[in-house]
Each structure stands twice: as structure tokens, then as C-alpha cells.
Amino acid sequence: MRVVIVGASGNAGTALLRRLRTESDIDVAGVSRRLPENSTLEWHAVDIGEDGATDLLTPVFRGADAVVNLAWQIQPSHDQRVLYRTNVLGSRAVFQAALRAGVSSLVQASSVGVYSPGPKHAYVTEDWRRGGVLESSYSRHKVLVERMLDEIESDHPMLRVVRVRPGLIFQRDAGTEIGRYFAGPLLPARLLRFGWIPVIPAHPGLRMQAVHADDVAEAYLSILRSDADGAFNLAAGPVLDPRVAARAFHGVPMPVPGFALEGAAALSWWLRLQPVDRGWVRLGLKAPLMSCDRAADELGWRPRVDAVTALREVVAGLADRAHAETPPMRGDADMPGRMGGLLRGRLPGTGNPY
């Protein structure tokens, strides 16, 4: 089986590469905008958002049994044109190239962000409304990409299309990357090595799901080896809420109203103090909890790492500046979102780290 992974150098991509390379009957190729150094894997350098990306991707995909599209940009949050160019137009280029190349399976990394606002004390299945959370550009882009897949499925019934909708994806090596993308240079990350966060913001809507990157990779492998199609939610228990976080990090929950959380994010983002805009907070407060019964029933998928362990692992990775050698996950101190970058005028939420 030949599998081409687009966006193979990111958080989920590196985990999936690790898993697939242990399978002797799977031939893997990676696609990314910038290539890792000193890798023995077959890599192709393609910026999927550029004009002509479809023409560049088509010969790469030709002969592949499956294309897995993991490519997605979260930063720079201050340049929405760049994000739309990669996330929406780039995904379209991947889909068009897969169709031209005659690939039989297309697996798309979607997200809980595709869902309309939903319950925080019940679980939605894969047929929940897919209208997204409008204040979040990340969510809007996920919705647009899934609508493209709806059209492709309708026009090409012989193509197997799978959408993978995970919660937050954590692994140790993503610690520095997640810190750059979601916290910024002012976070005293080294203090986290003690596993203590004294104050945990508390709000009824702050109930989210997470999953370890290795468990996500296992789900992708199960999908590739099956004939399943449609959507699959992926998350591990327990649900991460302020009480769970407080127990895990020996902190005290402090009630904070939603408008204060959103306002603080909006102001600090506008001042270029951190890279997360108001839309991310809104998404966290409104995204529903997901049922993962379909993945368990049809793929036999059950996470091996619980959500608290995955969270502790990525926090430890953040404290220890854990990273990987692929461009999006490197630990360079002068990148936007790191203190060295700030001292060089590279502000959070700017620049292209991919």
C-alpha cells in the first residue's frame, strides 16, 4: 500500500509517520512546504496554497492507494489571507490532485471545530450540525473544507472519503510548537516543569476533549486498512474541565465570566502579546463534546493514553522545550511566539512557521 501524507511535518503528521513506518507493507511519502533535514523518508516540497499546486501534487499522488491530508495552518493569526490560502484553497488543490491521480481513498483531517455549538454535558455523534463557530476562522475554514468534500462525495461516488474529527491533539514533542502557537513568548514555561499551575480559569463552557497523537495515528492506520468511510470522532477520556485540570496541576479553579475570557484574549492579541484571537476562546466555550462510539465500533479504536496523561505530557514538553526537527515543530528560540523572536521584532501571530 502506498500512502502520501500531505502536511506530514506537523504534530499529527510526525506521529502518523512514526506509526506507518513500522508497517512493512506500507510505502509512505511526505509532502510539506519545507522539507526536514536528514530524513530518509521520501519527501516532496510543495506549498499547497500556491498557484499551480494541483499540477505539482498530481504526479506525487499518482500510484498512491490513499492520500491523507493533514495540512493546516493555525498561524499567523494576524494574516487571515495566508490561513485561507492554505487551509481552504490548499485543501481544494489536494482534493483536485487526488481526483486527477485516480487515488481510491482520500482521508481528511477535520476537527471538532467543524461542529455547530452543542452540549457540554452530553455527547454528539458524527451527524451533529456542521455549521462551526462563526467567530472562529479555524472553525469556518473546517466547515468550508468539509462542504467541498460533500460535493466531491456526491460527484465521485467511487472515491472513498473519510473525515477524521479529533479533539485537541497532544504529544511531548509538540510542547514547544503548541507554546508558540497558543501561548506566546510571555508564558513562563520553565515554571511548568514542577507540574504546578496555581490558578485555573473556570467557566461552565471550558469543557474540552483531547487525545494523544499516537492514538490519532493508530486511528488513521485503522482507517487505511479498512474500507470504512464517512466521519469519525476521536477523543480520550476524561473530559478536560477546570476541576480536572486543577487536580492534575494542583491548582485552584477561579471563576471567570466568558466575556472576560474573550475580552482578555482579544485585547492581548490586538496588542501582539500572544497569538490567540478571541475566536479560539469562543470555539473552546461553544464546541460540543463528541461521542467516539463509531470509531470504537467500526475501527476497533480505543485510546491507550487518557486525556489527563496526554495533557501532562504536552505541558512537560512545553516546560522542557521539547520539539522535533521538522520545520513546524523546531525549537528555534528566535521564532515568533518565543522570547528570542520577540526580542528580534518577530511578534506573536505573525510569520509563517510551516
Rank of each mutant, 00 (worst) to 15 (best):
L168F: 10
L168M: 15
F170L: 14
F170W: 15
Q171T: 11
R172C: 05
R172F: 08
D173W: 12
D173N: 13
A174V: 07
A174E: 11
A174P: 06
G175M: 03
T176G: 04
T176K: 04
T176W: 07
I178K: 00
G179A: 14
Y181H: 14
F182N: 07
A183V: 06
A183K: 00
A183Y: 01
L186R: 14
L186K: 12
L187G: 01
L187S: 05
P188E: 03
P188I: 04
P188C: 09
R190F: 06
R190Q: 10
L191Q: 13
L191D: 12
L192C: 09
L192Q: 09
L192S: 05
R193K: 14
G195H: 06
G195V: 05
G195Y: 09
W196P: 00
W196G: 01
W196V: 15
I197G: 00
P198V: 12
V199R: 01
I200T: 00
P201D: 13
P201I: 07
P201H: 03
A202C: 06
A202I: 01
A202P: 04
H203C: 10
G205F: 01
M208N: 10
M208F: 03
Q209S: 13
A210M: 08
A210Y: 06
A210V: 08
A213P: 03
A213T: 07
D214R: 12
D214T: 07
D214S: 14
D214W: 10
D215H: 10
E218T: 15
A219F: 02
A219V: 01
A219C: 07
Y220P: 01
Y220W: 14
S222R: 15
S222C: 10
I223C: 00
I223L: 04
L224F: 11
L224D: 08
R225F: 11
S226C: 11
S226D: 14
D227E: 15
A228Y: 02
A231F: 00
N233C: 14
L234Y: 04
L234V: 08
A236T: 04
A236D: 05
G237D: 15
V239G: 09
V239Q: 06
V239E: 05
D241W: 02
P242G: 12
P242H: 09
R243I: 06
V244C: 04
A245T: 10
A246M: 12
A246T: 04
A246E: 02
A246H: 04
A248D: 10
A248T: 09
F249C: 01
G251D: 07
G251M: 07
G251Y: 02
G251R: 05
G251L: 11
G251S: 11
V252E: 04
V252P: 03
P253L: 03
P253K: 04
P253G: 06
M254G: 02
M254T: 13
V256E: 10
V256C: 13
P257M: 03
G258R: 07
F259Y: 07
F259L: 08
F259S: 07
L261K: 13
L261W: 12
G263I: 08
G263E: 12
G263A: 06
G263M: 05
A264S: 12
A264I: 03
A265M: 06
A266L: 03
L267Y: 04
L267W: 10
S268W: 02
W269M: 01
W269S: 00
L273D: 05
Q274H: 13
P275M: 06
V276G: 00
V276K: 03
R278I: 09
R278L: 11
